[in-house]
């Protein structure tokens, strides 16, 4: 059992679980209400998703459909309506689940400005690991995102792309099994975004985490995902759930030239425009 599994699982590793079915994340008849008492509005209804371990899932949908809310439910930041079932590695979720880490779109607001990059990455480790170990892990995580040489810089001394990489490193340092990413590249410029997309694919291949990635950018979703889920309707439900036929190795130029890329992109756009049939 690797350090990653020990740390993230907080118990026995997946290979030791007798009931292990290779599913990292599962939700059944999930419903979500926002607002309070009489003003409750159902945002999501009857959503069933099963995500196998190590899968890179992109969740798409028009703005306002409830993508971010859904991810916040997965992250335990927003409660699901009664009757919903949410499981991470076979365990029911209430509150931020062990082994799942959230990456926010708003990197500037989620890094602590009074901590250096390294200290920001260490934040989630301070209560569980001795100093030397967490420093080592923070440096490994920063290296993974290519920022080892900026470890002692403060967020404000970094560009937006670097700050977002620090936030990703902060998540990676916890050696998560599930990364929940809410439009993490949405606020970055096109060139930085493209570099980070490929970097994230590489990190995903290397770390073995399951990723749930919210975006409204169809090209980004098609480029990154092993599987694409389109949310539709009010309240939202799964409109399309499709496994990507693209090869595992992705590239900004060649992948985007593949006929399969264009075909998938076409399908998703049709679905988003409402021409597709509801699955």
């Amino acid at each position: 059992m690797s350090v990653a599994e020990r740390a993230a699982g907080g118990g026995s590793g997946p290979e030791m679980q007798s009931s292990d079915d290779g599913i990292a994340f599962r939700c059944r008849s999930l419903a979500v209400d926002l607002g309070i008492a009489d003003y409750k509005r159902r945002i999501i209804e009857n959503l069933d998703i099963e995500v196998p371990r190590r899968q890179f899932v992109c969740i798409l949908g028009e703005s306002g459909v409830g993508k971010t809310t859904l991810l916040r439910v997965f992250g335990g930041l927003v409660p699901a309506a009664p009757g919903s079932r949410l499981e991470l590695n076979g365990q029911a979720i209430s509150g931020p689940p062990q082994g799942a880490v959230f990456v926010f779109q708003n990197y500037a607001g989620s890094l602590l400005p009074w901590r250096t990059a390294r200290k920001n990455v260490e934040l989630g480790l301070e209560e569980t690991l001795p100093k030397a170990e967490r420093q080592r892990r923070a440096m490994v995580a920063l290296e993974q995102v290519g920022l080892a040489d900026r470890a002692n810089d403060y967020p404000r001394q970094m560009s937006g792309g670097m700050q977002q990489r620090v936030q990703i490193a902060r998540a990676l340092a916890l050696e998560p099994r599930l990364l929940l990413m809410d439009e993490p590249f949405g606020a970055l410029d096109a060139m930085t975004r493209e570099n980070l997309q490929i970097e994230l694919r590489r990190i995903h291949q290397a770390s073995g985490a399951t990723i749930m990635f919210i975006t409204h950018d169809v090209d980004e979703a098609v480029l990154l995902a092993d599987r694409l889920i389109v949310l539709r309707g009010k309240p939202a439900a799964v409109g399309l759930d499709i496994v990507s036929p693209l090869p595992k190795e992705r590239d900004q130029i060649t992948t985007k030239e593949l006929p399969a890329f264009l075909e998938l992109r076409h399908t998703i756009y049709e679905m988003l425009r409402g021409h597709g049939t509801r699955a």
Binding site: G75, L77, F102, F104, G109, L112, R170, L174
Partner: peptide, 10 residues
């Protein structure tokens, strides 16, 4: 956003 970070980092 700081509080959310604190929560997801447990």
């Amino acid at each position: 956003s700081y509080l959310d970070s604190a929560r997801v980092l447990r």
